[in-house]
Nucleic acid binder design. Sequence first.
DNA 1: GTCTATAGGGGGATAGAC
DNA 2: GTCTATCCCCCTATAGAC
Lengths: 222, 222
Amino acid sequence: MRSAEATRRRILDAAERLFARHGVEATSLRQITAAARVNLAAVNYHFGAKDALIREVLARRVGPVNQERLARLRACEARTGDQPPSVEEIVRAFVEPVLALRADPDAGQAFTLLMGRSFFEPNLQVRRVIIGQMREVARRFTAALRRALPHLPETELWWRMHFSAGVLAHTLAGNVHLETLSGGRCDTSDLPAVLERLVAFVTAGLKAPLPGPKQRSGKRKC
Amino acid sequence: MRSAEATRRRILDAAERLFARHGVEATSLRQITAAARVNLAAVNYHFGAKDALIREVLARRVGPVNQERLARLRACEARTGDQPPSVEEIVRAFVEPVLALRADPDAGQAFTLLMGRSFFEPNLQVRRVIIGQMREVARRFTAALRRALPHLPETELWWRMHFSAGVLAHTLAGNVHLETLSGGRCDTSDLPAVLERLVAFVTAGLKAPLPGPKQRSGKRKC
DNA sequence: GTCTATAGGGGGATAGAC
DNA sequence: GTCTATCCCCCTATAGAC
């Protein structure tokens, strides 16, 4: 016999781990309840249906991460006053809170893997949660970056943020590929080093010179 | 009555479209054969099992794309002779062949979506095909970039290629997010413009200055 | 709140007629 | 090569005992 809260939590933890490893579609409620050592019917009792469970698994962690992102951004802006924070500072405010979850022994690596994958998830429920949760954050960070990169047209900025999100997602979810293809030369577990690399790459991308209006020079030749 | 080849092709086309839209796990053979207007048993007759079908759907397009990537890279290197091609040229050689598929009315957008998603796919079969097909390409492009960026340590280069792959994947698979979050301000269908933006971002990221060895300055403060 | 048992529907794969 | 029919498994969700 266990408390209701404990059961709920065990289900969420097991679901998080399994969703991360096998994907939401390939994970059955039976696998989840078996891993959580909880009765099959408990999922429906506590969450109603699989979709609702998916939503809660994501929201439980994305919510706090996004709150911290916004708090860091506010702290940056408070510190710099009238001047906008630098691009690098803004990127850090966005990236650090989610990367930090990897060091969290409770959340562990499972959630960051799931999170990175979520951007690409065909499952409608997952996409809805992600978009819903990111909307406010995207709005605030766009505004901050627009001040930091005043020469950049707004459309261009959205594109570059989109590219940046891709870098982050791949960093969270694609470590297997990096380790395999590089033949084990890259250590994906050294978080501070990963963070510095990520920030350097994304910052440079955001600051890239604008491509000329229409260059049809010899470049296309090769 | 149809020829065997035609049936095979109809199955591949339908599977490609459905895998792209709903994911491989969420797509059933029944959905595929219904969409292809083909008998259910035809899948097993022509491919043996679902896993084999997945493999062929991917390999059919990835193979040619990777051949063209290598051909373009060779062309670049032949043209520049002893000098290495520029980073931008190398990036173009990698990115253009796959983006071009989006303009192909036959392959259409379905495959590029599937391809972008494949990097993050939990399904083992998908990952195996992707890694297998990318190994040679990754090796050749790493070698080319190492010549173009001789100051960059090899580990760093692998990381940056990994980040670049994330940008590409998100560009291929994440358009829904960009259009939603930007409120329709970004036109994802203008391929030449997308290409220029992508190349500019990735090239800048690859060329980014190396982060200092250990900076613990006021940056972390915000 | 927690369990067992089961309804009710798909799923992948195959045997065997044509 | 193509079809129908079917096997047998696992899925989600729920009803009802405890």
